[in-house]
Design a protein around this nucleic acid. Structure first.
Length: 467
RNA sequence: GCCCCUGUGGUGUAGACCGGUCAAUCAUGCGAGCCUCUCGAGCUCGCGACUCGGGUUCAAAUCCCGGCGGGGGCACCA
């Protein structure tokens, strides 16, 4: 049976790069009717954050993933201790108390450090002292013995467990000896009977380290698949940078629209199917890929266009008077041009003296020439008389004409604030029907773009997704 | 510096393991047109690539060597 896992460090929000590991692993397990495991790799009490566990689960669920088992490595310390002790007893690991500089000097020359030569009895003694809290942070580390002539110094006698005294957000001060990444991964991948490990190529050296431990324990290494780095134009994906930005207040949170986090993408109205499809299409080549926003938009449009109802939104509105128009009170339009079953919306018309009153987008007005005929979309043709502080136009007819069509707002305008992808704000007004929109709804503002309702009350705030 | 990986159109990919069917797939992008009362969607046509040099071979995108380019790692982080 195929068993895969996604093993995030709960030290920050998931971004599109992490999702690649998760989605590929999940998809592989599901495709072969196997098992998918979620495992929190929270063995560094220094940076694990309690709120991230649920945030990560939420992102995974949102993307349509489900897991058959869930673990947190912070619950499994005794297990790691048992293996550490076994390795020390069998002479396959040792407790090193050398200053790190000295150790590296020896390692780089392929020489053993004095600790490596001690008997297993002495190793166990040191180990018990570590466990009992008799060793300060940084004073001792358990190392796995490897071939000291390995061509890559980075894999020689790598560290497996260390002392860390900071309380862990989940298990508090119960432990002061914590396993390091390569150690706990190896133990868990074997204990959980993982058959396929899918991960980024930054783990290439780690894989070599982990293989040495699998050999010591007589275990078989799972099938490993690696993929290259994923970057997005103009987006910092790094967790540390993200967390720093949030702490300094430069970013509004883990869902700041400028970020490439899943939370940010969700906020901008990307649908999970689009993200999933894109990631699966990118696949798992070892070459680094730089994703363009255009591609992400294209994937999202495929889904969003079908679902999103249409509304008129007018940024930077300019008051416009239509003279000689018939006395119309309202117009009724479809919510979605291709889906009559979505229903209709009503746009009431305002009048002032003998004229109908509209609001048009400032940019649209600026582009119009005097005398030019254009169409208030779905309503009437008009021609521009003059552009003052108020724009004056003259009614030309109701029948559809082959002229430019622009959206408009008349009576009952609703104020809308749009959060742009660079986190700047654009203000405008929309037709009254938007007042009933619920948070999270994705709609299309015609000729403007797809937006997602971020806040419904008291003021309507939407986040811009894309054209 | 040392260890390792990788190079197909603007972008993302298929093909490479098992050389010929590849004058190279699909998507996106861009251009033209059709359609649609959106600058959105849909449809049609078009543009655009095997990093370079050598070698092996009847035959190389595919195998080998070298150059150049890109990336990762060299943490008592994950």
């Amino acid at each position: 049976m195929v068993i895969t896992r996604f093993a995030p460090n709960p030290n920050g929000p998931l971004h599109i790069g992490h999702v690649r590991a998760a989605l590929l692993s999940h998809e592989y397990a599901r495709r072969y009717k196997g098992k998918f495991i979620l495992r929190f790799e929270d063995t560094n009490p220094e940076n694990a954050l309690l709120e991230m566990y649920e945030l990560i689960r939420r992102d995974l669920r949102w993307l349509g993933m489900s897991w058959d088992e869930e673990y947190a490595q912070s619950d499994r310390l005794e297990l790691y201790y048992n293996y550490a002790e076994q390795l020390l007893r069998e002479g396959k690991a040792y407790v090193c108390i050398c200053p790190i500089k000295d150790f590296r000097g020896l390692r780089d020359r392929g020489k053993p450090c004095p600790c490596r030569e001690l008997s297993s009895g002495e190793q166990l003694q040191r180990w018990r002292l570590m466990l009992a809290g008799g060793v300060a942070k940084g004073e001792a580390v358990v190392r796995i013995k490897t071939d000291l002539s390995h061509p890559n110094p980075a894999v020689r006698d790598w560290p497996a467990l260390r002392v860390t005294t900071k309380p862990h957000p989940r298990v508090g001060e119960r432990y002061s000896v914590w396993p390091l990444y390569n150690f706990s991964v190896t133990i868990d991948d074997h204990e959980m009977e993982i058959t396929h490990v899918i991960r980024g190529k930054e783990h290439e050296v780690n894989e070599q380290r982990q293989r040495t431990l699998f050999e010591h324990l007589g275990w078989e290494y799972p099938t490993a698949v690696q993929y290259g780095r994923l970057s997005m134009a103009g987006v910092a994906l790094s967790k540390t940078q993200t967390m720093r930005g949030i702490q300094s207040g430069e970013l509004t949170g883990h869902d700041d629209v400028r970020l490439g986090t899943i939370a940010a993408l969700r906020r901008r109205g990307f649908v999970p199917e689009a993200i999933k499809q894109l990631i699966l299409d990118i696949g798992s080549t070892l070459v680094d890929a730089s994703l363009s926003w255009e591609t992400l938009y294209a994937y999202n449009r495929k889904f969003a266009d079908e679902r999103a109802n249409r509304y008129f939104f007018v940024p930077n509105p300019v008051k416009t008077l239509v003279h000689k128009a018939p006395d119309l009170k309202q117009v009724r339009l479809r919510l979605h041009p291709g889906h009559p079953e979505h229903g209709e919306r009503i746009l009431p018309l305002a009048s002032e003296d003998d004229a109908l009153v509209f609001y048009l987008a400032g940019e649209d007005v600026a582009a119009l020439q005097e005398g030019q005929t254009f169409r208030l979309k779905d309503l009437m043709n008009v021609s521009l008389s003059s552009k003052g502080r108020v724009v004056e136009v003259e009614f030309q007819g109701l029948e559809l004409a082959d002229v430019q069509k622009i959206q408009w707002v008349s009576a009952g305008a609703v104020e809308v604030e749009v959060i742009r992808p660079d986190n700047s704000r654009e203000l405008g007004i929309a037709e009254p029907a938007v007042a009933g929109l619920k948070v999270d709804t994705i709609v299309q503002f015609e000729r403007y773009g797809f937006v997602r309702v971020d806040v419904a009350r008291p003021k309507l705030i939407v986040v811009y997704g894309h054209r």
